[in-house]
């Protein structure tokens, strides 16, 4: 059985806090930050260490803010 671990990088200055990524994430990895960016939006940020790199967030993100990496780990034995 394989396990995937992922990382997302969010361009917070481009983010408008629409929350579409948060809704699309099956793992509840993302949430709105309490801080705001230069445009005054609360931006999306990673709040849990459980990303699988499925890229749903990046695909739904209207503003092309998200880059996703995914590492597949094959379980030994």
């Amino acid at each position: 059985m394989a396990k995937a671990v992922g990382e997302v990088i969010i361009d917070i200055e481009k983010c408008k806090g629409c929350e579409l990524c948060i809704e699309a994430c099956p793992e509840d990895t993302l949430a709105l930050a309490n801080a705001i960016n230069k445009k005054g939006y609360r931006y999306a940020e990673v709040v849990a260490n459980n990303c699988t790199g499925c890229a749903n967030c990046a695909i739904i993100c209207p503003d092309a803010c998200i880059t996703v990496y995914r590492l597949i780990m094959k379980k030994i034995a």
């Binding site: 992922g6 990382e7 890229a55 990046a58 092309a64 803010c65 996703v68 990496y69 995914r70």
Partner: peptide, 14 residues
């Protein structure tokens, strides 16, 4: 992070 964020692991970029 360092082991995951590598060009070969990229699955989506704008």
């Amino acid at each position: 992070k360092e082991t995951i964020i590598k060009p070969e692991n990229l699955v989506y970029k704008p």
